[in-house]
Design a protein around this nucleic acid. Sequence first.
DNA 1: CAAATAAGTGGACTGGTTGCACTTTTTAAC
DNA 2: GTTAAAAAGTGCAACCAGTCCACTTATTTG
Lengths: 194, 194
Amino acid sequence: MDTSPVVGRRERKKAATRQAIADAALRLFLERGYDRVSIRDIAEAADVSTTTLFKHFPSKEALVFDRDEDREAGLIAAVRGRPAGQSVVEALRRHVLESWLPVATHPLRAGFTDLVDSTPALQEYAERMWTRHTAALSTAIADDAGVSHDNIVCRALARFVLDIPALTRGRQDPRTAVEEIFDLLAHGWRPPGR
Amino acid sequence: MDTSPVVGRRERKKAATRQAIADAALRLFLERGYDRVSIRDIAEAADVSTTTLFKHFPSKEALVFDRDEDREAGLIAAVRGRPAGQSVVEALRRHVLESWLPVATHPLRAGFTDLVDSTPALQEYAERMWTRHTAALSTAIADDAGVSHDNIVCRALARFVLDIPALTRGRQDPRTAVEEIFDLLAHGWRPPGR
DNA sequence: CAAATAAGTGGACTGGTTGCACTTTTTAAC
DNA sequence: GTTAAAAAGTGCAACCAGTCCACTTATTTG
């Protein structure tokens, strides 16, 4: 019956508080819009002090992106664990299609997506959530290629791949968009047809 | 003798005030570090009210990047005005080498560069100063190629080019770094030698 | 000179974020 | 089992960036 053993009451209560805050925040944001809700409003709605709120979330933006899974591990795994013979770019292409596309197109999250798209501060934050992993991904790529960790081309490739979510956010056909960008990365710029 | 004719006293005083604020800000930032200086400190040092300060500069970060020339015009001109037969990527490569490299390597600005490199808020701001022009550059590229303005590959190329300053900031050999990144954009990813 | 216009002032205010000293709850050790 | 350490939470004051507003002062223009 237990989902996981020996999870102390403390941890459970902590998680509950965190969840209460995140829920209150999302509800209020969707109701009123991001910048018509203050941190104090959220704390009040969740019945905690603002001090407590900031012990669970480092910033107002972070309240929106609760469930920030470990993208980094996934990215590195995609590079390291790819089948023999597959190129790095191809592996990343598949990974992005599998991990980013669902997020971009999930119909249940329409309200959430609208919230982000209509709030510059959140767009920036979301963008940084990805590009923050440039160093880690770049290191994985450099290791794989057997070159120095600070190799600029590896760093550039990492950065460009992590730009993709921002580039394709709000697009009508994100899948094609992702494919075309990877084409650019794989083969270089060619004046597009049409 | 006049640098420009009919410059009223008003305009001159305004420019002087602006300069006094920017000077005070840079001096204090270099002395104490960016986040140990408050807006009020700067206003006081320049002997103006904070209200006045914000009439000249929209944010604290903007105080550091006084003299924000019009990069956008230069970027678009580089695409539109390039010699016949030259590719867009090649034109942008030349433009970046001419416009960004001097900034990155100017020895007189060592203190300034250190300030930016040691302050995350300023790095982000500088980055956004460039990527802000993604839409404009992307449009120029798309026009040039005769495709729709929102073509995703054009947008990606524009974005990637504008990432270059952030990618190469603080590098030992920025010129080579820029060249190698443009190689990636021109020909696609190839596992780097060595 | 008399508006009209623009620059600057001062001070109060909002909203995100931090610090501090304190209480309560949970856990772990004896 | 009692107790002490560790963690979660509280309340409040404070800081700082940025905005608002009503007001004064200087410059321009007709």
